[in-house]
Amino acid sequence: MDTIILTAEAREVGGTRVARALRKTGRLPAIIYGHKETPQAVTLVEHDLKVALAHGARMLELEIGGSKKPYLIKAVQYDHLGTLPIHVDLTRVNLDERVQVTVGIELRGVPKGVHEGGVLEQDLRSLPVECLVTAIPDTLHPLVTHLNVGDSLLVSELDLPDGVVALTDPGERVATVRALQEEVEAEPGEEGEEKSTMPEVIGRARDEEAEGEKSS
C-alpha cells in the first residue's frame, strides 16, 4: 500500500503524566530510533495514526519541522482492552533497505478434514520475513481447503510475494488438521451432586504424621 504522510511534532518533555496529558489532547507519544542516531521523541495525531493502522500501513512518512522522511512502524502499544493505541515505535529506514518484520498468517477456508470430524489447529500465527522496506506484505491468507485429517500446511508451501524470504525453518508447520480426541463428558448424575473433595494442603499430611508419632 502507499505510504501515508503524517505530521509529527518534536516532544521535549517525557514521562507518564506528560504522555497521559498528551493523549487527552488527541495526540500520541512516539519514539524514533535506528541507524545509530540518537532517539527522537515525537507526537503524532491519534486519529491519523488509527486511520493508517486500519489501512494496514507498515510505513509512515513523517513531516517533522519541515523535513519529510520515511519510517517503519516497529511496534504499537495498545491499552488494556487492546483497542486504543497508546504509544508507537518507529525506526529510521532507507527505501532500498531490506528489513526483518513479522507478518501475520490468517487461514482461509474450511479444510476437507474438518467435514470428516477433524479440528483445524493453527500452529504458526505470524511469520518472520525479510523483504524490501517498500514491499512488506500484508497479512498472509493461505488457503487450507485441501487439507485432510492428519495433513499439515508447511512454511515452504506458503505463497510468498517476490523478494520476500521466510526466516523460519521451511519445514515448520503453519496449520494442521488433527483428529478430534474423545472428550470424557461427566455423566448427568455426577454433574448434579457437588463433590466435597478439597485440595490437598501442602505440608499438612507431613505435620499430621509428625503429630501422630509424638502422641504415640
Binding site: H80, L81, G82, A186, E190, E191, E194, K195, M198, P199, E200, V201, I202, G203
Partner: peptide, 27 residues
C-alpha cells in the same frame, strides 16, 4: 465438576482487592 486446585499451600485466603486493569492475559 467445578474447577479447583489439586494442591494448595493454605486452605483459606483473605478477600483481597482487585486493583488496576489487566496488563497481561488481555490478548
Amino acid at each position: 465438576m467445578a474447577l479447583m486446585p489439586k494442591r494448595v499451600k493454605w486452605r483459606k485466603s483473605q478477600r483481597g482487592h482487585i486493583r488496576g486493569k489487566a496488563s497481561k492475559g488481555n490478548t
